[in-house]
Nucleic acid binder design. Structure first.
Lengths: 123, 123, 123, 123
DNA sequence: GTGGTCTAGACCACC
DNA sequence: GTGGTCTAGACCACG
């Protein structure tokens, strides 16, 4: 695949978010092996070190685990994934609401904006 | 005020967002003079260069104007502020919705989370 | 038995330590035959190469001997085991004390911590 | 300073432990600036990336904090340092005792070994 | 083949 | 000047 990365955020972070999303969306089976560092690096067109960092961060979050000499695997604990998703969601929602209120927007305006936004994405 | 800044974002950006918010919330009157770069820098405990950059960015967005030898002033154009607020809001909403959908969350879950989040902040 | 291994240390090393401990605790009789590499590998859910390495290391230390065509046996020399245990103990104690002193802890604090730790494990 | 590192442990880890120890022993004042990544790298004769990793790990533990464009500083929170030292001590003591008991050693033997070990280091 | 570590050196944003 | 990121490539221990 190509190397389309937003320059405003670190590449490792963007890749991390992608994997995060794919796990949350259950596009990976639990316990599934992720591509090797080298293969994945070639695949997305970045340096192996960058992928290694991605895997490190994901492991620190507990969403993957690496087995020496074998590879990196999605955690087999579905409860953990649900917990992380919940946490992530709460964090995002709270930050979003805080930002909106800080802009002086009222509740009904915010809610309306989200609704129309969702309708817009629905297509 | 102390110097409590989130290290995950540039300091200048955080200060900028604060000013942004205060203007949007009409805590500054239109045409009001902002503190001098030096005073503001001392106030928030930051390098003057950082405040300078903040003012530059705000001016680039048109939300403040600097008058040579007089200082930096909030724009007197209310329409411009509304426009910027609208833009800002749309950007935030879209990014938020995209992030939530990427996590595999459904519309109703997202909407519900925002509602309960708002209720929570209401107090 | 499952395959619960600490990822911070090599698997072969952890298995080695376990066998070490069982010999020291006299859970193996002197001269007793250890399981075959293959059986042991299946038992702990690990690559046979890993077990092979464990046996090699143990043999290098003289705590087991392999007899061609017969298998691997715990040494029949009790003095050797005592010696190894003594060596091992000294190494551990010295490393422990060094680590504690490096942390700026005083003798009495260290001793007290060990005492309470032992009481805690006693139950 | 020279580059005397034990090859059995990662260099970054050994450096990390050294800094850890110096902070615990109060050889650094609270809030003190650590050497810059580059300077420190030259000082100990390793690559800057290695030092950066050390600082990252220490920051993750909360014992230092980095301020963008300014440097890396020892945390100013003495309670945190005490807590970390306590944690570290407990972990070490428990691991030590567990290892010793696993070797089939009795309480009094262990305690005696620690005492004579301490006497030995006292000089 | 796999991850873990390390080097050498580059470019960038930030203060 | 300072940390943050990234590349290119090397060597090692492990399974």
């Amino acid at each position: 695949m190509g190397s389309e990365f937003n320059s405003s955020q670190p590449i490792y972070y963007q890749i991390m978010q992608q994997i995060y999303g794919r796990i949350f969306r259950n596009e990976f089976e639990l316990g599934q092996k992720l591509p090797s560092v080298r293969d994945f690096a070639i695949d997305v067109g970045v340096n192996p070190n960058t992928i290694k960092r991605v895997y490190n961060e994901l492991e620190r979050l507990g969403i993957v685990e690496t087995k020496r000499g074998q590879g990196t695997f999605v955690t087999e604990n579905p409860a953990l994934i649900d917990l992380l998703r919940q946490e992530q969601m709460n964090k995002q929602v709270n930050r979003f609401i805080k930002d909106m209120l800080d802009m002086g927007l009222h509740q009904d305006v915010i809610l309306k904006a989200v609704q129309t936004g969702l309708d817009h994405f629905e297509k």
